[in-house]
Design a protein around this nucleic acid. Structure first.
Lengths: 336, 336
DNA sequence: CTGAAAGCGCTTACAG
DNA sequence: CTGAAAGCGCTTACAG
């Protein structure tokens, strides 16, 4: 593995000049720059990241704290992050905290002890407010994707609008007897979660239109969890004509249960979700679309911009709310 | 941020001794060690990773090259990797290559240029043989999970056994007219892919039992892809009595299509998959289980062991095949 | 058991 | 435009 000094010697310049030529710094004659670059390429020179880090104080790495990587939302955000980070020539260091109470906090502490990154992204639900504010004091740009938070810059779907759109869609079709199935929030104080925002929006729509008020059901955030509850719920004579699910996973569990119970969707039951997961198409699920990969790209772009700003500037803690988009498929129709 | 020299001064020892005390090296009196540790804790000392890297040549980081993070298999492997890496106090650097031909190769090259890791894991399908052998020459432990490969140490489900078990299960139930739906392999030479191994195993079982020979169908690796094909396939009068799907995603697409076509599963159609994804339970899918998170943990353990070995030892390129496990649910039954 | 010193491989004021 | 030198913050032979 050739060193910078090898390149410098072969090019007949000092290490300083070689370094400048390679880094693209100005104040190097075009001729030397070209020569150094050529020789570096010939020798297959790669600057030592460790040395560069030590000298510059920059890691060219961004950290991601996430409670999960094997669920659609988190995976998609991560995908967007990785893509954008790559474009900015930054690496991504992954901290999979796992479920809270299952060692997640311990892993968080380990990150605080060892993590060396220029910027940090937390994908929501992984952290309680106290931890989030500790991160905000790290002196590096920190942002959250998935939920609004007062502690850091944040990006998320406009959950109020999403919940409203979903309920209004069914109301517009003529439904008056709706049930909301919310998906469980594990960590956040419930009243701050996207789940709760969607729920409240549903309740507001119900109240506004004078719909029958059924108590909201809460299920584990998974197709299985929703499915188990839906099997029991849909098998009753007084089932609603429409279900507004907090997420597509929940909605899919409901549709599956309906299929198994031979309840026709949408003729006998309308179902709407939020997310637009890939499987939604095959299920014909009407849903409110969001694009987590885009959120991931945006949060990285913000971090890069924050990194470019002069140190000590007042930290930006604003929130970006993405507008939801109704996607009508075949799981919703006027009530029979 | 306190430095090692601050700790040393406060403890009244040299930096050398402070370093030894903190790193747990031997040859430090218990008294000094304890004092140094206490003072380091009081001061909130965290050693600079960059400086340590430069001095030791170790990054305490392992790299993961994956074609995707938002699909169950990859996400689960990654989860296992992150967990095990954390236990070994190593960081994980994520390279999401994305689909091949969509900039994946370019991202791979960028990794080759900048990636500084002590060990490397590639999750299959992301790399062609040529790239894999370049990695193997990197001088660090390299392993692949998801498919056997001659270029590196590898870990994967025993696909032959999985394919055999799936087909034999339906044969044992009395089926004689089966169709295999394989899931598409994007990158690997097809004859090396797990998809192809499962397919061949299916064909061998068919031949052995003299079953009707239907040409194998290949569909995109997704519920949607399988669903589209299955809708058309199942709507014909001469449909098979059982379907052996290459993966659960494909199997789920088939079951969904059956539901929509009002074909009863398992009465009119048996379906079996491979994976045991979380949604399999709700669908009642009979499947062949594998545990990718475990594979991820194992591969990290192997990397750690390889790291502990003396440099220059002959690289281990053996393969670990995990035994499949049949999980019978309600999607399979004797033919009508 | 402990310390002084060299070294890891870059970058960047400072001079010229 | 270029170079000599200091410095980033640790670890680790080498001496004692």
């Amino acid at each position: 593995m050739p060193l910078l000094s090898d390149v410098a010697r072969a090019a007949g310049v000092s290490k300083a000049t070689a370094s400048r030529a390679l880094s693209g710094a100005e104040g190097v004659s075009p001729a030397t720059r070209e020569r150094v670059e050529r020789i570096a390429a010939e020798l297959g020179f790669r600057a030592s990241g460790a040395a560069r880090r030590l000298a510059t104080g920059k890691t060219r790495t961004i950290g991601v704290l996430t409670p999960s990587v094997d669920r659609w939302y988190f995976g998609s955000v991560l995908h967007g992050i990785a893509h954008a980070a790559d474009i900015h020539e930054h690496d991504v260091l992954l901290y999979d905290l796992g479920a809270f109470g299952h060692g997640g906090h311990e892993k968080f502490e380990r990150f605080m002890r060892r993590g060396e990154v220029d910027g940090l992204i937390t994908i929501t639900w992984s952290l309680v407010g106290g931890d989030l504010s500790r991160l905000a004091e790290l002196g590096i740009p920190v942002a959250t994707v998935g939920e609004p938070t007062p502690h850091t810059r944040s990006f998320s779907l406009d959950d109020d609008a999403a919940g409203t759109q979903a309920a209004e869609h069914l109301v517009a079709l003529g439904h008056t007897d709706l049930l909301h199935i919310a998906s469980e929030t594990e960590v956040q104080p419930f009243d701050a979660s996207s789940s709760d925002r969607r729920k409240r929006a549903f309740e507001a729509v119900s109240a506004r239109h004078g719909l029958r008020m059924r108590p909201v059901r809460t299920v584990p955030t998974s197709l299985e969890g929703a499915h188990a509850v839906a099997r029991e719920l849909l098998d009753r004579p007084d089932r609603p004509t429409g279900i507004v699910a907090g997420t597509d996973e929940v909605a899919l569990g409901v549709v599956l249960a309906a299929h198994q119970l031979r309840i026709r969707v949408p003729e006998e039951l309308s179902v709407i979700g939020v997310d637009d997961v890939p499987a939604a198409t095959a299920f014909g699920l009407t849903t409110i679309r969001q694009d987590p990969a885009q959120h991931g790209e945006d949060v990285v772009d913000w971090i890069m911009a924050a990194l470019a700003e002069p140190r000590g500037a007042e930290p930006d803690r604003s929130h970006t709310a993405y507008a939801p988009e109704l996607v009508v498929r075949s799981s919703t129709a006027p009530p029979a």
